[in-house]
């Protein structure tokens, strides 16, 4: 089982027993990189949420207007049918 931080491993003295020393990045760089990655991931997630809201609202408004037009056409058609004489051919 490995114990200690990566920076401690990197700073370990050469053993001289045939094993090659592992040279890792220091812990501070790794943590900094992870912080930047986490911030970028949060920004991208927030951006996607904003995009979904924007596009959803945009097309919902258009869809509502199409529905309004459709209902208006139906009402107009009913009014036109009401204007026709009862004995008129269909």
């Amino acid at each position: 089982m490995r114990t200690g931080s990566l920076s401690q491993q990197a700073a370990a003295p050469p053993s001289g027993d045939g094993y090659e020393k592992v040279v890792g990045r220091d812990l501070r760089s790794i943590e900094l990189e992870r912080q930047i990655e986490a911030r970028a991931a949060a920004k991208t997630a927030s951006d996607y949420a904003h995009i979904v809201w924007a596009y959803g609202i945009l097309w919902s408004v258009v869809a509502l207007y199409v529905l309004y037009l459709y209902r208006r056409v139906l009402r107009l058609r009913r009014d036109m049918e009401g204007m026709l004489p009862k004995d008129a051919p269909p």
Binding site: S46, W53, A54, I57, L58, V61, Y65
Partner: peptide
């Protein structure tokens, strides 16, 4: 005029969402 309302609503809703971000 009605279509100005529809497109205007889209602009006035998507703009603030973009501005918020």
């Amino acid at each position: 005029g009605e279509v100005v309302l529809v497109t205007g609503a889209c602009v006035l809703l998507t703009g603030p969402i973009w501005g918020h971000a």
